[in-house]
């Protein structure tokens, strides 16, 4: 296992795209949240005027759900990175070369799966550190640090879901530009159309169980949560359901990706 990861590391450690996208993720996520927390970026008003709704969520334990929500948007950087790294192998035909040099097909696949797991773990760890800093600053102490810690775990699940989906799309489509295009179209537009249609026409919450949406439901927009609570809207499905469905999708990506790789010519 570490052997596979060590080789993946050889492939990416001198890859500037990897470092640029990672650095942007690492810099922009805290910068964005810093600006929101200080009312620089806000909803309801502009400049130094106006009321702000967004900056209320940085103390423990709300910081986890709040950062998790923003993280679910910023994870797109890392998803695109996974797509680039994987489709590069097809573009350079190094997927073939890895096999010719002595890997089994499953070793090639597992190396990428492990990379996805490690990246998910790293971004979750980073989110945890950021949450600790923001929470400490805006709560004044570390009390309540581990309240709602499950939301950090949800973020790990969300990362696995997004990055796993990105890996699956890459293995399926193989071409970099098309895979990135489809990933963005699906995550931003297509899934919302599908979700809306299913929920509207079937009058059920099943649309919430679509591949990326299931994990998005684990970390909803904090304001939306408040609004829903105020309106006493009927809860849809439980968090546990969403968590299991997200895990289920990760397994689907794994086995579908595996089937594609084992069945086809390279």
């Amino acid at each position: 296992m570490f052997g596979l990861l060590a080789i993946e590391w050889l492939k990416i450690k001198r890859y500037s795209t990897f470092w640029v996208l990672t650095a942007l993720f690492l810099i922009l996520l805290p910068l964005w949240n810093y600006e929101i927390a200080n009312g620089v970026i806000k909803m309801g008003g502009s400049g130094k005027k106006g009321m702000n709704f967004l900056n209320t969520q940085y103390s423990f334990p709300q910081v986890w759900g709040n950062l998790g929500w923003w993280g679910s948007i910023f994870i797109t950087f890392i998803s695109i990175l996974v797509i680039i790294i994987t489709t590069n192998e097809y573009g350079y035909r190094t997927n073939r070369q890895n096999i010719i040099d002595g890997w089994k097909r499953m070793q090639f696949f597992n190396a990428k799966v492990l990379l996805v797991v490690v990246l998910s773990f790293m971004v979750t760890l980073y989110l945890f550190l950021l949450g600790g800093v923001f929470g400490r600053v805006y709560s004044g102490s570390f009390s309540g640090l581990f309240n709602e810690f499950k939301q950090v775990c949800y973020f790990f699940l969300l990362s696995l879901d997004y990055l796993g989906f990105a890996l699956f799309i890459s293995i399926w489509i193989k071409r970099s530009g098309l895979a990135i295009g489809l990933f963005l179209l699906y995550s931003l537009i297509i899934e919302n159309i599908l979700k809306g249609s299913i929920n509207y026409y079937a009058d059920t919450p099943w649309g919430n169980l679509l591949p990326l949406q299931a994990s998005d439901e684990l970390l909803p927009f904090p304001m939306l949560q408040m609004a829903k609570a105020m309106m006493a809207a009927t809860p849809t499905l439980s968090m546990t359901t969403y968590a299991w469905v997200a895990i289920g999708w990760c397994l689907v990506y794994y086995f579908a990706g595996r089937a594609i790789l084992l069945r086809n010519d390279w």
Binding site: K11, Y15, S16, Y92, R93, T94, R96, Q97, I100
Partner: peptide, 13 residues
């Protein structure tokens, strides 16, 4: 040791 069809290497390395 094999060479199949084209030289396949990581372009950025």
């Amino acid at each position: 040791g094999s060479l199949l069809e084209t030289p396949n290497f990581y372009h950025y390395l």
